[in-house]
């Protein structure tokens, strides 16, 4: 099976560069029209004026932060069960990008909240879950960083990722219940402005662009991890 040929870090190293290049281009192909629609096609929102245009990066970042965590947990589990080093490297490569997406979701959420609800931070169900998701990412990265032996770090962080991914929905629904109990649904991002079709199109294009970008940058990071881990097993420097 051709795919298995790429499963060792040694074979995957050159392929990752090509994949990264392709997905960077794809990210631009989706990103540029997405931004164009976001700024030059989508009309002003009657309630929030122009501030709502932040949605074109806030929602894609939030979606990607959740999506990357699940993909990361998947590759971590594959690496744990099949004992394949490359899968664990892929999980390790995804974590920083996922954390970055979560940070961006929080940052843009705050910048959107300030003009719209007058406060930088809103204990809204989704924003609060994003904050907890950031802690999960930080925990994953911190655990990896504090274990020297890469193989043990792979396995330990895989278990944490699996336990984490089971907890993400539980945390989300607990926070959602907690939010509706204490504050009622008056202030919440879920009541996004009525999504005119071109607004939706802009957001979907930006989401695809963020997705392509995440794949591309993870490929670069996998190469960096392979360089760090395999540096003296000879094949790297010829």
């Amino acid at each position: 099976m051709r795919f298995w040929k790429y499963s060792t870090p040694q074979n995957f190293y050159p392929a990752a560069k090509k994949i990264a290049a392709v997905f960077f281009v794809l990210a631009l192909c989706f990103g540029i029209p997405g931004l164009y629609i976001g700024f030059f096609v989508a009309p002003t929102d009657h309630q929030q004026g122009e501030a709502y245009r932040i949605i074109f990066i806030h929602v894609p970042a939030a979606w990607m932060s959740m999506f990357i965590y699940v993909v990361m947990a998947f590759w971590a589990a594959v690496g744990l069960i099949l004992n394949t080093r490359l899968s664990s490297m892929l999980a390790q490569a995804l974590a920083p990008t996922g954390a970055l997406m979560t940070f961006l979701a929080l940052w843009t959420g705050a910048f959107w909240g300030r003009p719209t609800w007058g406060t930088w931070w809103v204990w809204d169900a989704r924003l609060t879950s994003e904050l907890v998701l950031l802690f999960l990412y930080v925990g994953f990265i911190a655990l990896r960083a504090s274990i020297e032996d890469p193989r043990r770090a792979d396995k330990a962080s895989a278990i944490l990722a699996i336990v984490g991914v089971v907890n993400v929905p539980i945390i989300y629904f607990s926070v959602k219940w907690w939010n509706t109990l204490h504050q009622g649904a008056s202030v919440s991002l879920t009541k996004a402005p009525s999504m005119a079709s071109d607004m939706l199109l802009g957001m979907l294009l930006m989401a695809l662009s963020f997705w392509m970008y995440s794949i591309a940058v993870s490929m670069l990071r996998v190469r960096k991890i392979i360089r760090d881990r395999e540096r003296n097993s000879g094949w790297l420097n010829n």
């Binding site: 990066i57 970055l100 670069l220």
Partner: peptide, 25 residues
């Protein structure tokens, strides 16, 4: 429309973060 600080604050930080990530790799 008066929201320049917030919109550009979000977009520039996103751009800046992406640039750093690519640069670091």
């Amino acid at each position: 429309g008066g929201y320049g600080l917030y919109v550009w604050g979000s977009y520039l930080v996103t751009l800046f973060a992406i640039a750093i990530e690519i640069f670091s790799l």
